[in-house]
Structure formats: C-alpha cells, structure tokens
C-alpha cells in the first residue's frame, strides 16, 4: 500500500540512493490521491502547539527571512524610518558628546518628569534620589516623576534595558516596561523592553519581584529565574537561567574563557543591545576566549568573527550578522 510505504519511509533512516528513488516514486502520477492522503495524515499527526521554538538559532533564521521580506514590504516603511532618523538626530544634537543627560521637561503644576537617556553607543550608571542604582544599556531611557521622593510609591518607566539594584526603604518600587509592571521591595534584577525584540525579559538576580500586567496572571519570580513575555501573543514563560549571561553587560570588563560562541553572542547581544544573527553554518558550539572592555562593537565583533572563522556585517545600528 502506498500509505505504508510513505509512513515507513518517513519514520525510518534511509541512504541517499533510497531517498532519491523514493522521491522519484512519490512524484510518479500513479496513485497520486492515495499518496497525498497519506502525506496529509502525516502532516496532521504532527502537532505544532507544543514545539513553538524561540531559541537563538530559530530567531536567527527568522531575521534572515525578515531581510528578504522587507524587500517586498510596501511604502509605509519609509516615513517610519525617516521619522526615527529625525528623532535620533534631535537627540544627538541635544546630547552632543555626553554619554547621558538629564532632561527636565518644562515645569508646571503637574509633577514633571525626569528622564535619563543613554546614547546608542554608551551605557550609564545612575543613582536615583533614594540611593537605588540603575545601569542603563545602550540606547535606553528611564523616566520618573519629580515627586519620586515624596510619593508613597516609587515608580519608574523603562525603554530598552536596565539593571536595577533597589534599596529597600519601606516603599514599593515599580518598573513599568511596556505592558508589564514589576513590583519589588529591595532586590537586584534586570528588565529588557526593546523594539529590537518581540519579547520582554525580566531576570531576577536576588530578592523577589512580582510581575503584573499584559493579560497574564501575576507571577512572582525567585532568584535565578527569568520571565519572558511575548508582546504579540500576550503569553509569558518562566525559566531558570544563568543570570550572569544577562547582567554581565553592566561590568566594565567581560571575560569569556573558552566558552561556546552561542553563549558569548548572547552576552554580547546584551552588552551592546544589538540583535545578533548568524547565517550559513556558523558553528555556535565553537569555543572562544575573549576579553571585552570599552571597545566599540565593530571592533569586538570583528575579533569574534576572526576567532569564529566567519565574516561580520553591520546592517544598521541594531543588527549584527555573522556569516560563514
């Protein structure tokens, strides 16, 4: 029976010659309906629900696809790009050479808001009025109201990526990042909410945080846990991670000693707040040793590409591609 042949072939391991013969047999017009029926049953039997894949490798493949699909995208993209460019230009003019700045909005009766910004090429370490320390990654911003000290709760809003070392003073501390709100007392954790990624990420180093919002039921994280929130699906997952990989960007020097390339790239994605894509057969398991200080990302990625025996391309400020 044609169905048996198809089922057994798909379940088994066969040499190339047999696979070639099977393919030529499959496209023979003889019994095409029975063959299609058998194929469709195989397809239906595979369920997609439990294998949603958002590993680094899969995201890389998706962004390769994005570069092809963007070519066929319609005209609406141009104005968006131009608008962004204008904003970036305005910020550069305002900041000149400083790595960060305090921008006070015009004062009025309402509490005014204070905003901290890092440029695309620098990070910053800031102290809030209560002694809480915040590290902001490249191209990120943090804002809070001027009544921060007097209010009964401490509220800040984050765009981009920030690492928080919150001082406990009896008042709750809230970070709003997109749809999500993180509530803490005293603790250290990292929040990422960036347009570069479809997912927001909250990584807890110590203490405890409670996350609300975004149509998910509130979640409390324990140290070492990371919550990933898919902005599109509105769903979240919690997993245990090596938090060092996610907060290493705040250190002035990072050292990688004989680590797989995939892990190094994960760290560098956070250090430079860029999206790294690999194409072709770049070996993510290859081990490299590297020390990263305050070098520009161009320099570090060209060293990485040398060590990993591949080439590097910079698509725009936010994207780095390694190709073999």
């Amino acid at each position: 029976m044609k169905k048996n042949i198809i089922d057994r072939f798909m379940a088994g391991d066969y040499p190339k010659e047999v696979a070639d013969a099977f393919g030529s047999w499959l496209v023979e017009p003889d019994g095409q309906d029975a063959k299609d029926d058998a194929l469709y049953r195989q397809w239906e039997a595979k369920s997609a629900e439990d294998i949603t894949d958002s590993t680094l490798v899969r995201r890389n493949k998706l962004s390769v696809l994005h570069r092809h699909t963007e070519k066929s995208r319609t005209g609406s993209r141009m104005p968006v790009r131009l608008a962004r460019l204008a904003v970036a230009f305005a910020i550069v003019v305002a900041l000149t050479d400083l790595s960060w700045h305090l921008l006070r909005s015009k004062s009025g009766k309402e509490p005014s808001s204070i905003c901290m910004v890092t440029s695309n090429h620098s990070k910053g370490e800031f102290s809030l009025p209560d002694g809480t320390v915040v590290w902001l990654n490249n191209g990120s911003s943090l804002s809070y109201e001027s009544n921060y000290t007097s209010s009964s709760k401490r509220c800040v809003t984050l765009e981009g990526e920030g690492y928080f070392d919150v001082v406990s003073d009896g008042r709750p501390f809230f970070v709003t990042a997109g749809d999500l709100t993180v509530r803490v007392l005293g603790t250290r954790f990292c929040v990422r909410h960036s347009g570069l990624y479809n997912e927001d990420q909250i990584t807890l180093v110590s203490g405890s945080v409670r996350i609300e919002g975004g149509n998910v039921s509130p979640v409390t994280l324990s140290p070492g846990e990371q919550l990933t929130y898919d902005r599109m699906l509105g769903g979240s997952t919690v997993r245990t991670v090596d938090t060092g990989d996610y907060v290493s960007w705040i250190r002035p020097v990072m050292e990688f000693d004989d680590l797989p390339l995939g892990k190094v790239l994960e760290n560098l994605e956070h250090r430079y707040l860029v999206k790294v894509t690999t194409a072709g057969d770049v070996d993510l398991d290859r081990r490299i040793t590297l020390k990263v200080g305050d070098e520009a990302k161009e320099k570090i990625f060209s060293i990485v590409s040398f060590l990993a025996d591949c080439n590097v391309r910079f698509i725009d400020d936010g994207h780095v591609v390694l190709v073999r």
Binding site: A48, I51, T52, D53, R58, K61, L62, T69, N198, M232
Partner: peptide
C-alpha cells in the same frame, strides 16, 4: 507580528 508568530509556531514542524 503575525508572520513571526506563525513562523515560530510552524517552522519546526
């Protein structure tokens, strides 16, 4: 966004 969603869901399949 929907394209990405379908891709992540079905590409492994």
């Amino acid at each position: 966004e929907v394209f990405d969603y379908f891709y992540l869901k079905y590409a492994p399949l």
